[in-house]
Design a protein around this nucleic acid. Structure first.
Lengths: 194, 194
DNA sequence: CTATGTGAATTTATTCACAGCA
DNA sequence: TGCTGTGAATAAATTCACATAG
């Protein structure tokens, strides 16, 4: 569903009013039946003979993915990668608001990055009362599990983990890991021998 | 398989000699049968009653994923994100060598980032003779498709795309897209209502 | 006529359960 | 005895095909 949403938001921006499952499939490199099945699973948002209204469909998917409310996010670890993620403008279209940034390095604390003041990581416990329920981990690998534990204790319900390791959390907390190196490692397998 | 490899490389670093499918499953948050099935599909690398030799298994998986040779990589678009990716040390353990970086901004060209001299993007055609077969796209969304086309023309067989869009390439070329914003957009769906 | 929504058919993936090897 | 490798059983995902609504 997130891929559909991304495509629909793009099409909506382009001024496209409505689209058929076939055309959407072409656009996204997917299969029309798949698309119809996926949408019908959540109730069916289309009109036979016409297709789907782009803007309405985007709104429905946002509701399904619970992106119809603003989510406040905290980032932990303002190194090179952390600073880039802090400055990344793409979160806004999905309703994410990076509301806080933390680090352990006293040289960084109280400095501002992209208009957000870096706080001492020992203050992570304040997240709950600040209504922050998602954490982004951009600390070195060795500190990832510890950071995750702290975030969970601070009440976050979801974690986006950029460190290249599997981390363990209570199963009520959802973790998504992005490991850049591992992703590129999948490429050669699919590449024809040159 | 890439996830297994990452875990095994970590365990190998830790000095672990051998491991059973059960212990590996625990460590990775996976299922033992799944692991055995996956390995047996490629031939079966274990010893009944003992388990798998960590180092040997890692080597076998590297061969399967074609990571047993050095791959030369070019990065296009040295903005904030591009610079971080250039500096990212994690590629080396999988045998990737970032051999070139390109940009269109004349202010950046011929400057050095992480010991790599930024070249004019109009020289991308030189990739083939320089034995570079993988491209990393870190340009703005609007330029992503165009960059992909140029990379394909320059002979790359695989692309790691960091721009938040679907890009079209001949099917002999493999694309993997990393869209940070979209990944985080999957979190709220799995988060219990607070 | 066109394109959805959906049962049925098919393919693919996961899990089980156990024979057999170290 | 402990753990692999693998058929058999189960579950899940994908694709087909068509009745039906606009």
């Amino acid at each position: 569903m997130p891929i559909y949403l991304r495509g629909l938001l793009f099409l909506s921006e382009e001024g496209q009013q409505s689209i058929s499952s076939r055309d959407l499939a072409d656009f996204l490199g997917a299969n029309p039946s798949q698309i119809r099945k996926d949408f019908s699973y959540f109730g069916g948002f289309g009109t036979p003979g016409v297709g789907y209204k782009v803007e309405n469909l985007a709104k429905q998917i946002k509701k399904i993915l619970k992106l119809d409310v603003i989510h406040r996010v905290a980032l932990v670890g303002v190194g090179n990668l952390g600073a880039v993620v802090l400055a990344y403008p793409g979160f806004r279209i999905y309703g994410f608001d990076i509301a806080a940034a933390f680090d352990t390095d006293s040289k960084k604390i109280s400095r501002k990055v992209n208009n957000i003041t870096i706080e001492d990581a020992s203050n992570l416990w304040t997240l709950k009362r600040r209504k922050i329920d998602i954490g982004i981990i951009t600390v070195p690998r060795d500190a990832a599990q510890e950071t995750a534990d702290t975030l969970v204790k601070a009440g976050v319900k979801g974690i986006l983990n950029f460190s290249p390791s599997y981390i363990t959390v209570p199963k009520k907390v959802k973790v998504i890991t992005i490991d850049i190196a591992m992703d590129i490692a999948r490429l050669p397998y699919y590449m024809p021998a040159s």
